[in-house]
Design a protein around this nucleic acid. Structure first.
Lengths: 202, 202
DNA sequence: GTCTATATTCCGATAGAC
DNA sequence: GTCTATCGGAATATAGAC
């Protein structure tokens, strides 16, 4: 499919994926895509019969962009160190998440086909979170009895919701607050006597 | 301003506020508002010269709807009990937050006037969170050294992000996971020996 | 305050030549 | 594959009568 150079098809997908991050799907018009990409009308409808087809391709691309970052969660190093690294990695809070944003687009959220890549991406990130959280519990870095699957959703939500708060106040600091607070809570949830697995006096 | 009955103006605002929750601002057309409300063209532009004016009124209304709920945070009862009650109160996860949603609307987030009510509402909820969290720390229900302002943003983010996750999978359970996990973390962040303020052996 | 008529521009395509 | 021309309908109003 990919012919080896920056062809029209690729240009269209790149441009659409930018615009979907910036403006979402519903509010992005084929006209804008053509203007920004410089690709002509005929060309566009040759490669993508409908706006939705182009959006789907762009969405898959955005999802693919996102997943490598989360592989940081199962890289080398202690589990808590990886958790902190992923949680605190630099992110452009005021732009938001190019995948999470799609859930708020009325035309995406009502379209199972467009929503599917979003769901898959989040499920994959969730799996990675669960694994590292289980490791942390096993390593005695997090208290036993915590539910790794729940906690994974909690931490993903902190990031997704952090964007919402930051955008509302136009202040990236709120995103940083949200994740720093989450990290502080995780630390407070370490077994009570660090280095001694026999907590409390059970 | 309010004439005592369900006049056109009020009908328009009610309808617009519903539609903004369902579809956002950018993707809601004046035509849809007229259709759903039954108010005519002339009437509509008499009361609201532009779509944006109507949206602003609807937005203020949505914000006003939201704030009473958060007053639960400074009601009667122990701080942790109020925190749990507010965090766990029934919410329609798949509809999302009618205020938070606005931050993802391209035409709202770029318009300081439309964004202002959203920012104000979140700031107010944050204040309430901070107060109850400080109480919880003072009462020995949460470990000292936790930053109430950060934590307040964390918990708000859990809710906002929980909606994102739930919508992505079309499963309210993810919203419940996110908040249950947050509650579990808060409990784990209680002083290590409950009832004994002299934690560890400092 | 409400009505109908009209206007301009954009949306999301389709047609058909090159 | 790309181009230009065209299309029917919707978006977002404006005009002016009642």
């Amino acid at each position: 499919m990919y012919t080896g150079r920056m062809d029209s098809r690729q240009l269209l997908v790149d441009t659409m994926s930018e615009l979907m991050w910036e403006r979402g799907y519903a509010d992005t018009s084929p006209r804008e895509v053509r203007k920004r990409s410089g690709v002509g009308q005929g060309s566009m409808y040759h490669h993508f019969p409908t706006k939705r087809d182009l959006a789907l391709a762009a969405l898959e691309r955005n999802v693919a962009d996102l997943l490598p970052a989360s592989s940081e969660l199962d890289g080398p190093g202690g589990p808590m160190a990886r958790i902190e690294a992923y949680l605190m990695r630099p992110r452009d809070a005021l732009k938001g998440c190019k995948v999470g944003r799609m859930t708020q687009d009325p035309q995406v959220r009502e379209d199972p086909v467009l929503l599917a890549p979003v769901a898959r991406a989040f499920a994959q990130v969730h799996d990675r979170w669960v694994a590292v959280l289980r490791e942390a519990i096993a390593a005695g870095e997090l208290r036993e009895g915590l539910d790794a699957r729940q906690l994974a959703h909690t931490l993903m939500a902190v990031l997704q919701g952090g964007y919402v708060l930051a955008i509302a106040q136009q202040d990236p600091g709120l995103f940083d607050d949200a994740r720093a607070g989450a990290l502080a809570l995780l630390r407070a949830a370490a077994p009570s006597v660090p280095g001694n697995e026999n907590n409390g006096r059970n």
